[in-house]
Design a binder for these strands. Structure first.
Length: 325
DNA sequence: AGCACA
């Protein structure tokens, strides 16, 4: 049976990695903030309600288009980073498949360490932008809090594979590295397999698709073997959970009031302090406990404010807790 | 990649 055609629910297909449509289930007891009720459970991935659910619950900001650049308006491809290194091409496909105008995607092992990125192709710029807005900052794996980052690709991928495959894989890893990481079935077709435009698609596609299936059970057992714990530790850059957050990538015009307005919607928020670091402001936000700071970090990661000019917020746990005076 | 206040 072709796995792309079978119906599924997230629970069936993603044991241990359910899709996360909404940042966090608001675990904090209501205290200072205004969020009190738990949201309803997300609809099944294939249900009709899913798409609008995503729209209303996405942590992405209302879309602000700063595209003064006409070149960018020709881009129909999204670039996705921040993926866990055991991500499957099929997962990328399922992430985008219900979005209007989506055509196909590719997963690319860059060969730089275990880095893996993806490209998602759309029929036009508008639909690419819409999916970007809806999915940027999605928590891809709640277990490790992996947050994906989506931007317009620098160039369009030239074509989709022959035979209409919905997704395919490009593997730039060396043979040595492949064997060192996992038993990836051989894909050495010796040709150039650039992300955008490959003329050698059909045979390598089939092999890549077969490979992506064959690897799955193995990576499940790896996960069970305690690899998940290793991911968890480095989930927020080796900084231990802290009730104070460090917020960077603020636009130069960002004000304390602007940031405070969004933070104060969340339960457990206490204090905000901004520092201007050579034009680039950063902020420290203190919360009641690590549960509330974690919830807010997950909820607001990568979201843009009106003042944002270089992408969304970058939020980490602060290295030390804010002093209380 | 950028982490202050005491």
């Amino acid at each position: 049976m072709d796995p792309r055609s079978r119906g599924f629910t997230p629970a069936q297909s993603y044991p241990g990695r359910p899709y996360d449509y909404d940042p966090l289930p608001y675990p904090t007891p209501p205290s200072v903030g205004t969020i009190h009720s738990l949201p309803p459970a997300p609809p099944a991935l294939d249900s009709p309600g899913y798409h609008s659910y995503l729209h209303h619950h996405s942590n992405a900001p209302p879309l602000v288009l700063h595209h003064g650049n006409p070149e960018q308006q020709k881009i129909k491809t999204l670039f996705i980073s921040g993926l866990p290194d055991d991500v499957k091409a099929r997962e990328i496909h399922n992430l985008f498949r219900h979005h209007r105008g989506f055509s196909s995607c590719q997963l690319k092992y860059t060969g730089r360490g275990n880095e893996v990125v993806a490209f998602a192709m759309f029929i036009n710029h508008q639909s690419a932008i819409a999916a970007l807005g809806a999915l940027n900052g999605t928590i891809f794996d709640p277990e490790t809090r992996a947050v994906i980052h989506i931007e317009l690709a620098r160039s369009n991928s030239r074509k989709r594979p022959r035979g209409g495959a919905a997704y395919w894989i490009i593997d730039k890893r060396t043979k040595f590295h492949k064997e060192a990481t996992e038993e990836w079935s051989d894909e050495g077709d010796g040709g150039s397999d650039e992300p955008s435009g490959t003329e050698n698609d059909s045979p390598s596609n089939k092999r890549a698709l077969a490979a992506s299936r064959s690897v799955e059970s193995e990576s499940k057992s790896k996960r069970a073997n305690g690899q998940a714990a290793r991911h968890l530790e480095k989930a927020s850059g080796d900084i231990p959970p802290c009730s104070t957050l460090f917020i960077a990538n603020l636009g130069p015009t960002c004000t304390e009031a602007e940031l405070k307005e969004v933070l104060s919607k969340y339960a457990g928020f206490h204090t905000l302090k901004m520092r201007g670091r050579g034009g680039m402001p950063v902020a420290f936000a203190d919360f009641q406990d690590v549960e509330s700071s974690t919830a807010v970090m997950n909820a607001l990661q990568s979201t843009s404010l009106e003042s944002s000019d270089r992408g969304g917020l970058h939020i980490e746990y602060a290295r030390s807790k804010m002093r209380k005076n």
